[in-house]
Amino acid sequence: MSNKSKHQDGMSLISKTISSFMTALIALFGFYIAFYGHLTPGGGFAGGVIIAAAFILLTLSHSKKVSLKKFPDIIASLLDNFGALSFVALGLLGFLSGAFFMNFVQKGKAFTLLSSGTILLANIAIMIKVMAGLFAIFVGLSIFGRIVAEGEKGDMR
């Protein structure tokens, strides 16, 4: 790690330029997969994984400085809890129509976005949870791996 200062942050210019386009497109595709989970294969988990992968690409190609400015780890941990809580709240709201996780929203026209009642909301809650959780896991593992390798202590950022 002695020649660390010689390196620029992140990967080469080409990777940076292309991933600055691709990050937004990949995240958009993840939202598409999560929102249409009731019509096509996929759903909240797969969409959340793809959105987290977009931010992982940003971390790889630029550096942790850039991606943690866009998606701070504090926000990630808050969103993680928020996703889990909103999923449980959705289940409890099912008691409005009789049972745990019962549908309480009007069903719309078939084969459109709003045709699934609470499934869409549940997918969004799972998406938020998985997205924040996976990104936090990636950042955490990359930090801990380096601490063990170098014997660094204290500086968690």
Binding site: M11, S15, I26, F29, A46, I50, I56, L57, L60, S61
Partner: peptide, 11 residues
């Protein structure tokens, strides 16, 4: 999604 995720894996 396979193309995008395989790109990220390769990177």
């Amino acid at each position: 999604s396979w193309a995008l995720l395989s790109f990220i894996g390769t990177m």
